[in-house]
Amino acid sequence: MTWLDTAGDILASALEAMTPLLLAAAGGLFTELAGMLNIALEGLMLTGAFFGFAAAAASGSLILGVLAGALASSAVAWAYGSATLRLKANAFITGLAANIFAPSITAILSAVWFGTRSVVALDIPEPARPLQAFFGSTSILGRIFFSHHSLVYLSWVLAAGAALLSNRSILGTRIRATGARAEAVAAAGFKPDSYKLAAIILSGFFCGIAGASLSLPLGAYVPAMSSGRGWIALVAIYLGNRRPGRTALACFIFALAESFSNFAQGQFGIPSEFILAIPFAATLIALSLGTSAKRV
């Protein structure tokens, strides 16, 4: 194995690792544009991961799994958004509620449905690798870009869609305007809170799919499998200065760090705890160096 192959493998696994980050960041982008700090991304992802997996296991269909993950997560987002906006509760505390609710309710349901509170591995269909047949996996470029499962490509399409939605659509414009100048939106005869709620539900939708993209390719649900990715996505949005392209780049860099540390673990036998800590550490360092003074 040459160093070129190794680098190719790291890049390929980085693209795979980027999938949940990219989707969560796409979701978080909407709440961020609407002027809210959405710390619930983590819990929303976990909800999506569990319900996506459960639905896929029950129906045997990945598509239903993805949809169920998105819906369940949107529902939790709706509850979180309603408490925040309708009851005028503190957004951080309600966000915390979502983050604590997700692991609890999934563990309880997991115990009831699957008889275990820890890892659930079931025989669900493996996602297809749609481009592998056409472009082959022999060349390095083929392996980096065309060997992935369908959820990776779905995430690219959805991320592009989110960028389009936020920049070009009426809804996106309203959400942006709400974040930039809510009183102007109200003066134009709209309800800023409705657009905030819409942004929160959109973030739930995308995070749900992000969660499903964790559990479905793995064929298993692991408690706390989102492992901080919601927070990392949040930081990626800051580093990307709320621009879709730059945010995607930040996601890629974090994913690269993740896949590199996985590689390092295999290579140098670093304890798994440290490997798990690397994304948090990278995020903290990036946040400290990158976003100082950007957040107002």
Partner: peptide
């Protein structure tokens, strides 16, 4: 003024 930053004058 209530101009919305981030949007063009036309918007």
């Amino acid at each position: 003024f209530m101009t919305i930053p981030g949007l063009s004058a036309a918007q």
